[in-house]
């Protein structure tokens, strides 16, 4: 059974019944990391790679990542591109409206540190981590879909190691 494999060796299953025993942490983390709903927005050229990753060839759906149009529904934001100061104000607001636990993946040089606009970009925020905490950085300009997928798998690993009792994020 799929879920038993996912929850690894901490699961006990009783021979005859429909009862399994596992820890709350494992179950919660497993369900969270398998349904990371994503905020439905893209910012610049990186967004094109994000769309390519969502499309059938790379298929984000198989990780349970589907775009949702409201911050109330979502677990992660992929910051996919150049964050202008005008947009930064809005991103901060969207982030504040998301229910916890929430995760940020910063995609591409622009979102990481300002990218090609680092010197003359009077209008660009030099790194999204100046306004909201970032869980995973994916380098590249733009990162290929494989890189983005690796970033998302890293984020899944991070979620897998969370604990209710111990605040890790």
């Amino acid at each position: 059974m799929g879920i038993l494999n996912k929850l690894d060796n901490s699961v006990e299953q009783f021979e005859s019944g429909n009862i399994i025993i596992t820890s709350m942490d494992k179950l919660l983390n497993w369900s969270r990391l398998s349904s990371m709903w994503q905020m439905f927005f893209g910012l610049a050229c990186c967004a094109i790679e994000m769309m390519a990753t969502s499309a059938s060839h790379y298929d984000l759906d198989r990780f349970g990542i589907i775009p949702r149009p409201s911050p109330r529904h979502v677990d992660i934001i992929l910051i996919s591109g150049t964050v202008t100061l005008k947009m930064a104000t809005r991103i901060k607001r969207l982030y504040d409206e998301m229910p916890a636990p929430k995760y940020i993946l910063s995609m591409g040089s622009c979102a990481n540190c300002g990218g090609p606009y680092w010197e003359h970009g009077y209008h660009v925020l030099k790194g999204i981590d100046r306004i909201i905490p970032v869980d995973v950085y994916v380098p590249g300009c733009p990162p290929r879909p494989e890189a983005l997928l690796e970033g998302l798998i890293k984020l899944q690993e991070r979620i897998r190691n969370q604990s209710l009792a111990k605040h890790t994020a």
Binding site: L85, K86, T89, G114, Y122, H123, L125, K126, R130, I131
Partner: peptide
């Protein structure tokens, strides 16, 4: 294009990039 509360006109050659906008640091 720019936010409504932006000050100055950035494509003027004598424009100085401000340190902060709404509490966000602008220079790298």
């Amino acid at each position: 294009l720019l936010p409504e509360d932006w000050e100055g006109h950035p494509l003027r050659k004598d424009y100085k990039v401000p340190e902060f906008y709404n509490g966000m640091k602008i220079p790298y």
